[in-house]
C-alpha cells in the first residue's frame, strides 16, 4: 500500500466523511450524532446505502474468516499459568507497608516490646498511610506504591518518630492531618519512622511548634527533629 493512499492524493474523487464512516456504522461504533448523520445520508443517497450493504457483507465475512482461525491450545494456557504461578506476583516495587511488615517480622521480640505493640503499630501506620493518601493523593489516574519517591519528599524538614503502642489509628490519622506531617520512610531499627513535617522554608519557631505538638499529642513516644536536610 502506498502512503499516497493514506493521504488520499489519488486523482479519484475524494470520499467525504460520510463515505469514510460507513464501516463504523456497520459495527455500531459511531457516536449517536454521527450515527444520526449517517442515517440521514443513507435515507437520501442510494449510493451510501449500497456502501453500507457492502460494509455489512465485509463485516460478516471478516468475522467468518477470523472464526476459522481456531483457538489457542490448552497447552498454551497451562504453560502461561504455570509461568505466572512461578512468579511471586506482578512486578511492582514493594510499598512502604510491605517493607514495614517485613521489617517487623525480622525484629526480635525484645526490640518489638511485644507482639501486641507491634500489631498496634501496624494498624496505626496503616491509618497514617490512609491519611497520607487522602491528603496528598495525586491528581492523575494510575497506580503508585506508597513509597514511590517524589521530589517533594526529598526536600523539606524532617523528624524521626516512634508511635506509642497505645495510640489509636484515629488519633494518629488526626495528628498527621493536624500537623500536615507525612510518613516518608521506615521502619528503621526500633520501629522508628521518618516524617516530613514541612517545607524547607518554614520558620524555626513554626517548626519547633510542630515538634511540640507531636510530643504533646500522646500518640508518639519519640520525636527527634533532623536539624539539616539529609545529604543526597
Amino acid at each position: 500500500m502506498s502512503r499516497d493512499e493514506d493521504r488520499d492524493t489519488s486523482h479519484d474523487k475524494a470520499p467525504d466523511d460520510v463515505d469514510l464512516l460507513v464501516p463504523w456504522h456497520a459495527t455500531e461504533r459511531l457516536s449517536p450524532e454521527e450515527a444520526t448523520r449517517l442515517e440521514a445520508a443513507i435515507a437520501r443517497d442510494p449510493a451510501i446505502a449500497r456502501n453500507l450493504a457492502a460494509a455489512r457483507e465485509e463485516r460478516a465475512e471478516t468475522v467468518a474468516l477470523n472464526q476459522g482461525l481456531g483457538l489457542p491450545s490448552a497447552r498454551a494456557r497451562e504453560a502461561l499459568f504455570a509461568r505466572i504461578a512461578a512468579e511471586a506476583g506482578p512486578d511492582r516495587r514493594p510499598g512502604l507497608l510491605e517493607r514495614l511488615r517485613g521489617a517487623l517480622a525480622g525484629l526480635s521480640p525484645g526490640v518489638l516490646m511485644g507482639a501486641g505493640a507491634a500489631a498496634a503499630l501496624v494498624i496505626a501506620l496503616q491509618a497514617g498511610f490512609l491519611a497520607q493518601a487522602y491528603l496528598h493523593a495525586p491528581s492523575g489516574t494510575g497506580y503508585e506504591t506508597a513509597s514511590a519517591p517524589t521530589v517533594e519528599s526529598a526536600r523539606g524538614r524532617f523528624a524521626l518518630v516512634a508511635f506509642a503502642p497505645e495510640a489509636t489509628a484515629g488519633r494518629i490519622e488526626a495528628l498527621l492531618r493536624e500537623t500536615g506531617a507525612r510518613i516518608v520512610d521506615g521502619p528503621r531499627p526500633g520501629g522508628v519512622y521518618r516524617l516530613r513535617l514541612a517545607d524547607e522554608g518554614i520558620a524555626p519557631e513554626a517548626l519547633a511548634g510542630l515538634v511540640e505538638r507531636l510530643r504533646g499529642s500522646g500518640a508518639v513516644r519519640l520525636v527527634a527533629p533532623e536539624s539539616l536536610p539529609p545529604a543526597r
Partner: peptide, 20 residues
C-alpha cells in the same frame, strides 16, 4: 500462540501501570 502468552505475561507484570 507464543506471542499471545507474552502479551498476557506483560499484563500480569505490568497491570499496576495500566492507567485506564
Amino acid at each position: 500462540e507464543d506471542l499471545m502468552s507474552e502479551v498476557f505475561l506483560d499484563v500480569w507484570r505490568q497491570a499496576a501501570r495500566y492507567e485506564g
